[in-house]
Simulated scan of single mutants.
Amino acid sequence: MSTATQNLTVTTRPWNTRGHADHGWLHTYHTFSFASYYDASYTSYGPLRVINEDRVAPSKGFGAHPHAEHLIWTYVVSGELSHKDSLGNVETLTRGDVQFTSAGTGVRHSEWNGHTEREVHFLQIWAKPSTKGLAPEYVTRRFEEAEKQDRLARIIDSVDRVGENADNAEGPIALHADLTMDTTVLSPGKKVVHDLVAKGPRKVYVHVVMKGRLQPKQGGSQIKIGDKVLGEGDGAFVEGAEGPGTVEIGNIGDSEAEVLVFDMGQK
């Protein structure tokens, strides 16, 4: 294990301490304060504002509602999620698709599960933009399983690093914030090493995707970062990271682990 990882301070966010709601049609966990869940200790982390892990029942969903001055993206784990917005975008997302909306000066959208039998499982993530008053923007990009298998795939990156690339078919989605999101599907016994994307102090957050509605009492996905072990639905705040440097994540469980890694500035 690298020296950079050993010097980190890792504070876990256990799955069952997050905000949680079961509305019948919506089963959700909130890493940060959201809707009726509020905890002053968990309102944001760097530019990260929301990490919701949602399961929506067949033929149910969120009606049209407004957003402004947030960067919002959806990472589909399984099932089908349909989207419609005031910019004229209408599409259905499946596993591998990441849909990004820069709400900017204002946009309305709705999201629903159009399938009549299977629920849809996805993560919705929000961040605060570094620039206000942006024109609304919408991007969908697909990331194949091979890109994530036992390696880190860059899903989201700062426009300052990758440039305006909304028209590109490949590569990370650009957003106006000092933030990246990588993902990996890590086999048992394998590890990945994340290279911090900028010089100086960095905040890192790691989230393990859930396979079911509860974390298994035994087995299931398990990763190790620093001296801490994370199971399904767990997250970790990583402090002390400084670029140039690395953060190492290893799978110590007996099954694959799907992991999201956020690397961001201090604000």
Rank of each mutant, 00 (worst) to 15 (best):
Q218G: 14
V208W: 03
L214D: 14
R213I: 07
Q215G: 04
R213G: 07
K199S: 14
P172V: 04
I156T: 00
H194Q: 13
D195T: 15
G212D: 08
E164Q: 11
D160A: 11
V204D: 00
N168T: 10
L186H: 10
M210T: 06
T184C: 07
Y205N: 02
A198P: 03
D157L: 05
V206C: 01
A166T: 14
Q218F: 12
A166K: 08
A166Y: 09
A177Y: 11
V192P: 09
K203C: 01
V206S: 01
T183L: 12
T184H: 04
P188C: 10
T184S: 11
T184A: 05
E164M: 05
Y205K: 02
I155Q: 02
M210E: 07
G219W: 12
D157I: 12
V159E: 09
M210V: 06
A166G: 03
A166Q: 11
S158M: 06
G219H: 09
A174K: 07
L196Q: 03
V204I: 07
H207S: 12
D160E: 14
N168L: 13
L175N: 13
K211M: 04
K190L: 04
H207V: 14
T183M: 12
G200N: 05
A169F: 14
H207G: 00
L175Y: 13
I155C: 05
N168W: 08
Q218P: 04
V209Q: 01
E164N: 09
I155L: 14
K203N: 11
V192A: 07
P216K: 03
I173T: 03
V185N: 05
V192L: 09
V185H: 02
L196H: 07
V204N: 00
R161A: 07
V162W: 01
G212L: 02
S158H: 04
A177K: 10
Q218I: 06
G171M: 08
S158K: 05
L186Y: 09
G212V: 00
L214P: 03
K199I: 11
A169N: 13
G200K: 15
V206D: 02
T183P: 06
R202F: 03
I156G: 04
R161P: 02
I155S: 02
H176D: 14
G200S: 11
K191M: 10
V193L: 13
G189K: 11
V159Y: 03
G219Y: 10
N165I: 06
Q218L: 08
R161K: 06
I155H: 02
H207A: 09
V209R: 00
K190G: 05
I173V: 03
G189P: 08
A166I: 10
G200Y: 12
L179N: 01
T184W: 01
P172Y: 07
